[in-house]
Nucleic acid binder design. Sequence first.
RNA 1: GGGCGGUUAGCUCAGAUGGUUAGAGCGUCUGCUUUACACGCAGAAGGCCGGGGGUUCGAGUCCCUCACCGCCCA
Length: 898
Amino acid sequence: MPRAYDAASVEQRIYQTWWDAGYFVPRTDPDRQPFCVVMPPPNVTGELHLGHALTASLQDALARWHRMCGDPTLWLPGKDHAGIATQWVVERALAAEGTSRHDLGREKFEERVWEWVRLYGNTIDEQHRRLGASCDWSRLRFTLDPGPVHAVRTTFVNLFDKGLIYRHERIINWCPRCATALSDLEVEYEEQDGKLYHIRYPSADNPDDGVTVATTRPESMLGDTGVAVHPEDERYADKIGGMVTLPIAGRQIPVVGDTAIEMEFGTGALKVTPGHDIVDFEIGERHNLPILTVIGFDGCMTDAAGPRYSGMERFAARDAVVAELEAIGVLEGVEDYHHSVGHCQRCNEVVEPLISLQWFLNVGKHDQPGTIAGNAYGAVVNRDIEIVPDRFSRVYLNWLENIRDWCISRQLWWGHRIPVWYCAACGGHSAHVDDPAACSQCGSADIEQESDVLDTWFSSGLWPHSTLGWPDAQSADLEYFYPNSVLETGYDILFFWVARMIMLGIENTGDVPFRSVYLHGMVLDAQGQKMSKTRGNTLDPLDLLEQYGTDALRFALTTGTAPGNNLRLSDEKLESARNFANKIWNAARYVISVVETRAASGNDELGDWYHLPAPANREDRWIVSRLDGLTAAVNQALSAFELGEAQQKIYDFAWNDFCDWYIEMAKVRLRDAASADAGVAATTLVHVLERSLRLLHPFMPFVTEEIWQNLTARISATGVGLPASIMVSSYPVVDTPRSAPDAESDVEVVMQTVRAVRNMRAQLRIPAGQKLEAAIETNGMGAVVEEAKEVISVLARVEPLRVLDAGESEAMSGISLVVNPLVVRLPLEGVDLQAESDRLRRELDSRRQDETRKEQLLANPNFVSKARPEVVENERQRLRSLTEERQRIEDIIAQLDA
RNA sequence: GGGCGGUUAGCUCAGAUGGUUAGAGCGUCUGCUUUACACGCAGAAGGCCGGGGGUUCGAGUCCCUCACCGCCCA
């Protein structure tokens, strides 16, 4: 084994062996509760970024843990056609070639996208393999596969036939560049510097009087059909019910009173443009104002804007309108104004609210039981679905409380084409799962399918069941793996995706899609900035895993962070994780070298190293007790989705308890290779290492497998029945009562003793190579110290070390270290006795303070009567120990002063 | 305008159900080629847990309030 762990030389080889062995494919067992998680399907043309790496690391850790626990485990991978995103990418490619989708036509364009998918669609799968993702590639799904397509159509037709899907003309968010409708969620609001224009609309009966309105979008005034003021606004009391003249257009429009108007904002008068503003649309509905569309689907002014503006691009029209308003003297002022403007999530174009004929899903209201929204609301309120961390439950519920019908149609060519057919003969339309040959109402063959496609999230909303075979009720996978166990994803798509899956999952199957939702945070750069291509601060996970190793990348992404919290990724964090992989590697190299050396000299008996039911040696009892404590804590943390905590605990145990202390202590016993105790130590080393590897495997799959293979190849596993790979071995559980608090506290005293001597050596600047003479007063711990004599001697570099008999005391000439109950005497030459006395007095003072604090606490009758008994007992014991320690220091000072 | 999160060591972050002396990584300082590891070892310094108030025998943890930063929704 090389001195340093070389990730590059092992990862791809190991991954291949796992896949070849079929470990990723679940072995279903009707008697066992399965574990199932579906991968959030990445865009089919996408490339792996750190968000994918994070989500995959977490899902893989969960999947590997459950698989090792013996649960039939399915991690189902897939990809999303990502309608608007993919169409956008291909359209850009076409533009570069000097052509467009309109030149190609719908069919040729679709074929072109499929070509693109065939070319780049596998990239991200390969990248997931590099990450070590243990997903079942034999079940890989694509949202445009026949199964999911069938599920989408079935869902649509069911909802259509129930009357919940309807077509309606309504104001929606429109992206003029993508030329499609967007859902509310696909609009991103950005704060921008703009202008607030004050425009006077003269009164119809008195052109010298009028109402001044304030707007950030003066071009939209061409579509105004009213002015609204608050009914209680005294400034406008005489205007309500009257008419004003719309400048430029010259139309007369009414002034209405509406309580939605904020009197404090602007002039307190709002121009109402029902055709181009969602709030105005609602005001218009309340007052029966006509709707005028002055901006078209192409982002240019329509004929309704008047001959001078018709055909003019909307922002050019803004300038022209302002100029004209100024010219005719109604522009009363312009002020700088900071406001938020909606942009297309995909192409960043400024979104235009427009009246348009679209398809909607009626989701009902959250407080109407039995509606889609009502069921989705109830599932979380009733805890049928648990969201981790819990605070996102409220975010989810708040969103549902304000939900509106979902605009599901998109004017795109790439996606699930809406399965509705219009009949030219009878004018009717109907929805069908299978393409019909003729009108279902009049039988005419003159039918045509709706040209719109569905919102991408409509199909991903079916993901937990559409991937498992729904609507085929006979599907074994659906029967066995639905509901999924966990849905793991980022909080940024809680509404887009998680909420839709809950809505459509319950609608289609009558059951929740998953039991738990685990939400992770966003990966930020070292400065806490969101990573984005435009900022140029993205890190490529492929580069990182080559540089640091996949295990290090995974560990860095998932350790030291709590669920739902963002994390900053830095070189330091990656280095630290890589160092940890290397630390484990080297600890293993040592243990393996011990096994090999012993085997070479015929000492290859390791006994029942796998179970190690009842170690006898104190140090072994200590490390095994610590290991069991770790095992319990890790299992508990994993059950609570606290993966970061679990990993931190393994890290601490492996590095501190095992490497820094146990291995170093074991070396002392291993010096006499022929001794029985050396064999016992070797056995414990193997036991602890092997279990630690299994604990760590879900998080660092590659290095643990590589070590595990190296280790198990060199040891006899008679009677254990070791599997061929660590990934199908069993996850450690605390199954034997090996807890040894006495050994833990005894070894703690030994470690404190070593630390105290080392500390003093450093303070006195005694070179590491120089041995020190020492004597220890044992005060009741004679047996422990006697047995640990060699360990203390070697680790603290004291020699000779005398263990004093009970009652025996050392004549005082040097330094005394109190490690209660022990006193370590270092009879150094030339110690300044006054300085030593001062040092001890300082220590005494600090001890007395602690003691006084404890005494006061225990003297408080409220504490003694109200605190839990075990807490009080704890404090009493602590006080006894402090008192004892204080007395020992006092004794030494007395000797010194004598 | 409403809501959520954050504020803990120089930096980045952990700290279930309130309970010993608040932890880690990185960084800093002092030593060390101690045969698993310098991607390392040993030692050390560094914190009125954002401010204020409250509940409690006891608060980083629970409640109220204020401030600043970030995010979501409108």
